[in-house]
Amino acid sequence: MQLLGVKWPLIQAPMAGAQGIELALAVASAGALGSLPCAMLNATQIQQAVAQFRQQTKAPINLNFFCHTPPIAQPQKLQQWQQRLQPYYRELSATAVNAVAERRPFDAAMAEAIAPLQPEVVSFHFGLPEPSLLQQVKSWGSKVIASATTVAEGLWLQAQGVDAVIAQGLEAGGHRGHFLNDDLSWQLGTFALLPQLVAALNVPVIAAGGIVDATSIAAAMTLGASAVQVGTAYLLCPETTISQLYRQALADPQRNSHTALTRVFSGRPARGIVNRLMQEQATATIPDFPLAASAVAPLRSAAEQQGSSDFSPLWCGQNASGCRAIPAAELTRQLVTGFQQ
């Protein structure tokens, strides 16, 4: 709480494509750390969002960025992927587009653009930016946190000088944050990874994955977490930007209880509610992140217009029991009840 300047040791997980600044504002109003996912935003959009945040609160903000290495051109993989999807295009009467999926890694231009914003916290997914950029961020006085999915990644992040490490368990919804090893067999559940990172590191550890209520928060703190990061539980809040179809899937226990890791939507493993595309293309050869997304986008749009989420990324953790369609500030206050007693 002292490190991040918040009342409660709770971070709202940045969820690209599912939220804007409204969710961060609501969470911040309740004393936790609101986060803005920036990987799909340009510099102007980030500046406008932060300006809106600053106008309404003096609370700290977390700006989150991806640190993936953009893939080299892979026309053969892309062609094979597009051909594999053609039957769906015909079925849905969808039209292919040539747009490239926007998933920007943090770079020098972005660092220059956000430096005047003086974000209190900057978080990274898929590793860290190059050392010179990382030092720029730290020179602003920003605290740096980043995701680790293994003990080795946590040790690497600590060696680079992060202020805290997020222990992203295998239960977590959305994209896996791994960056040292692509072998998913090394990935651990939150309550296996968390105590190992706590024992191995000298910096604070933030638990993420399967944290959905006051009881799971208490369990994480008992295992040594200094804070928790909560994502899935916020998805049904009115401040998110997800579709009605997405909301229906999250609210359906028969659907939200079945999640899996998939690469079909972006080219990188991410956990979501299982749907038709995930099941039928589980063994497909898929272009690297983020190239796969552009071919799927028209299918998603066409299917959603026809009332189907069969081709939509329904990111969700393994425990959706905490999802509630209530204001995010109210949900935040319920999550931190254990700290108020």
Rank of each mutant, 00 (worst) to 15 (best):
N64K: 06
E153L: 10
T44Q: 13
N256Y: 11
A152M: 12
L291M: 15
D310Q: 03
I21M: 10
G317W: 11
L134T: 07
K138I: 10
T215L: 10
G267T: 05
E91T: 09
I211D: 00
A51H: 06
A32Y: 10
Y88N: 13
F339R: 13
S312N: 07
M110I: 06
A94I: 07
T190Y: 02
Q79S: 12
Q45E: 15
A28C: 12
A101E: 13
H178K: 04
L25A: 00
A192M: 11
Q160V: 05
A148T: 01
P9F: 01
S294C: 12
Q306W: 04
T69N: 15
P298N: 10
G31E: 04
P298W: 10
E239F: 15
I72E: 15
N202D: 14
W186G: 13
G307T: 11
L261D: 15
I11A: 04
R268E: 14
M1C: 07
F66N: 12
V50C: 02
M110K: 07
W156G: 01
G322A: 07
H178L: 11
I286C: 06
Q244F: 11
R255Q: 15
F53W: 01
I211M: 01
V27L: 00
Q55Y: 05
Y234A: 02
P70L: 10
V198H: 09
A227L: 06
A109L: 14
T240G: 03
Q48Y: 06
Q79G: 05
I61A: 09
G5C: 04
N62Q: 04
R247C: 06
D288R: 08
A152K: 13
E91K: 14
N319R: 15
L291Q: 14
R268P: 04
S123P: 10
I273G: 08
G174M: 07
T283S: 12
V121G: 02
A18T: 11
L92K: 10
D288N: 07
E239H: 12
I166G: 05
G31D: 03
S35G: 07
V6T: 15
A192C: 13
L188C: 13
V50L: 03
A297N: 12
L194R: 05
S147P: 04
V27E: 08
Q118F: 08
G174K: 02
T150W: 02
Q135A: 15
L314F: 09
A302S: 02
L4D: 02
V122I: 08
T241D: 09
V122Y: 03
K58D: 15
A260D: 11
R103I: 13
P37Q: 07
L197G: 07
A43S: 09
R103Q: 14
A101R: 08
C323M: 08
V205D: 00
L63P: 01
P71W: 13
R176K: 10
I211L: 01
V144Y: 00
I242H: 03
Q48E: 14
Q196H: 11
P298E: 03
L194W: 12
K77E: 15
L134Y: 09
W8V: 01
A111W: 05
N98D: 12
Y89V: 11
Q19I: 06
I145Q: 07
Q160S: 01
A32S: 13
H258R: 15
Q12Y: 11
Q229L: 13
A18L: 11
C316L: 04
I211C: 00
L36E: 09
Q82M: 05
F289V: 06
